[in-house]
Every structure is written in C-alpha cells, then in structure tokens.
C-alpha cells in the first residue's frame, strides 16, 4: 500500500481546507494589525485571574527594559516572564502542560501569551488600547 491508494488521494474539498487555513492565517495577521493601534506607546501587561498585576511601559528600545519577572500565581505556581529585545516570553513555569513556555515570543500590540492552568495572561497593548493607563483625564 503506497501513497495514492483509493481514499487517500487529494480531493477538491481538501484543497478548500487548505485555502481556508491560508485565509484564516491571513485574517489573524490582519486582526493583529487592526488591534495594534496607532502611536508608539506600548505597554506590556501581566494579568492574573483577569486582574492586571503589572503594566510596564516600554521604551523605544526594548533592550533597555530587559527584565525577568517571576509571577507567583498562587498554590505554589509560578511563571517567569522575560522581557528582552526579542519581545516578551514565558521562559519558565511549573504548570502541568508547559504550553506557555512553548508559546511564541510576542512583540506586536494585540498579541498575548496565556498560561491556562495558572490563569495568567501576558499581553502587549498598543496606544489605542492602553488598559491600565487612563483613557483621559477630567480636569
């Protein structure tokens, strides 16, 4: 039995599945673009259980903001987040699946990394969606 036997040939529908995948990938890049917002103010925000723990305002050169933050997520859990010129990454964690450690490095506003078991999210927020900072001031 080799490739190409009955039932394994590439069919028209399969091609559509691939087209769908390509479109979806394109759409998510576009979604990121839209979310990125304008302006150059960028915030790295760490949220635990939906609550913002820390918001770090990034400078133009990310290397200046290099740091590692160890977040205690309760019940002995922790995630270590590294901010470097590469972007933001979870470099260590003691969650069961370690998916967050394998997550892609994020740098563009709109992107986020999650650690589902620890209910931790790290996200990058662009100017138009800065969360912890106020939207405006009444004076």
């Amino acid at each position: 039995m080799g490739i190409g036997i009955k039932g394994k040939k590439l069919k028209i529908g399969d091609v559509l599945v691939y087209i769908f995948i390509v479109l979806l990938t394109g759409l998510s890049f576009m979604g990121l673009k839209i979310m990125a917002g304008q302006g150059d103010e960028v915030l790295v925000q760490i949220e635990l259980n939906g609550r913002a723990l820390e918001s770090i305002k990034m400078r133009q050169n990310w290397a200046e903001d290099f740091r590692e933050i160890r977040v205690d997520t309760g019940q002995g859990g922790y995630n270590t987040i590294r901010i470097s010129s590469e972007g933001v990454d979870i470099v260590d964690a003691n969650c069961p699946d370690k998916l967050c450690v394998h997550s892609p490095t994020i740098k563009v506003p709109g992107q986020s990394i999650v650690c589902i078991p620890h209910k931790l999210m790290v996200r990058i927020i662009g100017n138009s969606q800065v969360d912890n900072a106020v939207d405006d001031t009444a004076s």
Partner: peptide, 23 residues
Amino acid sequence: NLGGNVITIGRRPDGNSWRIGLQ
C-alpha cells in the same frame, strides 16, 4: 475632551469601560 470635561459614548471598542483619571 472639552477643556477637561470628559465625555464618553458607549464603551471602548474592546468592550471595556473607559478609564478616566481625576486630575
């Protein structure tokens, strides 16, 4: 923002409330 008077319509596009600082 009209000279310090802040007026909001709806919520922020991301669905969160607007966060307004008091001077």
